[in-house]
């Protein structure tokens, strides 16, 4: 009898022990999953925040400072453009997916601001088909490409140049191209690095093997092509 009670107690204690271990393991796994998702979101947020280049802001403010006396109306317009751009960047950044059309509208605002600074040195052409602009993309995917095209491309050329933006949809694939002239002799540090790395990482984490980022520079032309699965709103 005593033996049976003892065995039973031992058995209960063992079960309790293993249950506790299992519970702890599952809790740990859960915690790790939460931590991981927080980390990912944190990284994404940091990435989005880092995409507003502080020098872009400082240069824009300097332009406003210059315009206040010579052309107050233009100074005000610039303030509004800048406010619009910042608000849209934050708003779009909070979404998981946005329409490519929205992304392009943001790029337009950015380019309009840079146009105030660079004048006729900055020209833009765009070829988009409506099927492509209706597609959904992760927010601020294209914006860094457009910024690179200005900062590392056109603004580094005395005579400036034209940035070509194109988006096409071929079956299940959405292709976005940003091309700009660049100075082939420019120093290393003026080459885009961080922005493109970030884009590659985002495309890889979000689309895996289905997403590709092609970067090439050839005889003073810098070209980036992003291919991702064409998603449309349900």
């Amino acid at each position: 009898m005593l033996f049976v009670i003892g065995a039973l107690l031992f058995w209960l204690a063992s079960i309790l022990h293993y249950l506790l271990i299992a519970f702890e393991v599952s809790q740990q796994a859960e915690r790790r999953a939460i931590e991981l998702s927080l980390l990912t979101r944190d990284a994404e947020l940091k990435a989005l925040r880092a995409q507003i280049d502080p020098h872009f802001l400082f240069n824009s403010l300097h332009s406003i400072s210059a315009l206040t006396t010579v052309d107050p109306a233009a100074a005000r317009r610039m303030c509004l453009l800048l406010a619009d751009f910042l608000r849209e960047t934050l708003r779009l950044g909070a979404n998981n997916r946005i329409a490519l059309a929205d992304e392009f509208a943001l790029a337009d605002r950015f380019l309009e601001i840079e146009r105030v600074r660079l004048g006729s040195r900055l020209q833009v052409t765009r070829e988009t088909d409506p099927q492509a602009t209706a597609c959904l993309v992760p927010p601020l995917l294209i914006q860094p490409l457009v910024e690179n095209a200005v900062v590392h491309g056109v603004s580094q050329l005395v005579e400036g140049g034209t940035i070509s933006i194109a988006a096409t949809r071929g079956g299940p694939t959405l292709t976005i191209k940003v091309e700009n002239p660049c100075d082939p002799d420019r120093p290393r540090r003026q080459r885009p690095g961080f922005g493109l790395d970030l884009l590659r990482k985002r495309v890889a984490t979000q689309f895996g093997a289905e997403g590709t980022v092609l970067v090439e520079e050839n005889e003073g032309r810098f070209r980036v092509e992003v291919r991702i699965p064409a998603e449309v709103a349900a």
């Binding site: 300097h62 332009s63 210059a66 010579v70 105030v116 004048g119």
Partner: peptide, 12 residues
């Protein structure tokens, strides 16, 4: 300065 506006504000 490569920007006309920046040259302008300095001149001013």
């Amino acid at each position: 300065d490569d920007e006309a506006l920046a040259r302008g504000v300095m001149r001013e």
